[in-house]
Simulated scan of single mutants.
Amino acid sequence: MHARAVAASTTALLGTAALLLPLSPARAADSGARPVVVAHRGASAYAPENTLAAVDEAAALGVDWVENDVQRTKDGELVVVHDDSLQRTTDVEEAFPDRAPWKVKDFTAAEIARLDAGSWFGPAYAGARVPTLEQFVHRVERHDQKLLLEIKNPQLYPGIERQTLKVLSNEGWLDRPHVKHRLIVQSFSADSVRTVHDLKPAVKTGFLGTPPVADLPSYAAFTDQINPSYASLSSGYVAAVHAFRGPHGRPLEVFTWTVNDADAARRVAGFGVDGIITNTPDVVREAVGG
Results as ranks from 00 to 15, higher is better:
280 T>C: 10
180 K>A: 12
147 L>Y: 03
136 F>E: 09
265 A>I: 06
214 A>Q: 10
188 F>K: 06
108 T>L: 07
265 A>V: 07
151 I>Q: 04
78 L>Y: 04
35 P>F: 08
25 P>K: 07
73 T>W: 00
128 A>C: 13
272 G>E: 03
128 A>Y: 03
95 A>E: 09
230 Y>G: 10
224 D>N: 04
170 N>Q: 13
106 D>A: 12
1 M>A: 12
215 D>P: 00
261 D>Q: 00
227 N>G: 08
168 L>N: 04
266 R>P: 15
40 H>N: 05
165 L>Q: 01
20 L>W: 08
204 K>P: 02
149 L>D: 05
146 K>C: 05
57 E>A: 12
231 A>K: 05
25 P>F: 06
88 R>H: 10
53 A>T: 14
98 D>I: 04
139 R>Y: 10
108 T>W: 03
263 D>Q: 15
155 Q>D: 13
247 P>H: 06
10 T>Q: 05
24 S>A: 15
53 A>W: 15
88 R>A: 14
259 V>E: 11
7 A>H: 13
214 A>I: 14
245 R>Y: 08
79 V>F: 03
195 T>G: 01
111 E>I: 07
97 P>D: 14
119 S>E: 13
106 D>Y: 09
133 L>K: 02
122 G>L: 07
278 T>E: 02
262 A>G: 07
120 W>M: 05
252 L>M: 15
273 V>R: 02
235 S>M: 10
8 A>P: 07
262 A>Y: 09
29 A>R: 08
98 D>W: 03
60 A>L: 06
89 T>A: 14
259 V>A: 12
153 N>C: 09
217 P>T: 13
4 R>Q: 09
148 L>C: 06
162 R>I: 02
285 R>C: 06
124 A>R: 15
84 D>S: 13
76 G>Y: 04
46 Y>R: 02
113 A>E: 15
174 L>H: 01
106 D>N: 13
43 A>E: 08
248 H>N: 11
251 P>L: 03
43 A>V: 06
16 T>I: 14
66 V>C: 02
278 T>Y: 02
228 P>G: 05
160 I>Q: 04
245 R>N: 06
155 Q>F: 10
17 A>E: 10
114 R>W: 09
249 G>N: 02
83 D>N: 15
193 V>G: 12
109 A>M: 06
139 R>W: 06
2 H>K: 13
206 G>H: 03
34 R>H: 13
46 Y>D: 14
207 F>P: 01
203 V>F: 00
259 V>S: 10
54 A>I: 12
229 S>N: 12
186 Q>H: 14
62 G>I: 03
252 L>K: 02
264 A>R: 08
227 N>Q: 13
66 V>T: 07
143 H>L: 08
122 G>Q: 09
151 I>F: 10
276 I>V: 08
197 H>N: 09
168 L>F: 04
136 F>P: 00
84 D>C: 04
109 A>T: 10
17 A>V: 09
10 T>W: 09
201 P>R: 01
204 K>Y: 15
289 G>I: 05
184 I>Y: 00
211 P>N: 01
44 S>A: 07
110 A>E: 14
230 Y>K: 05
16 T>R: 10
74 K>N: 11
41 R>S: 09
201 P>K: 00
17 A>Y: 12
83 D>T: 11
229 S>W: 05
196 V>E: 11
176 R>V: 08
143 H>N: 06
117 A>Q: 05
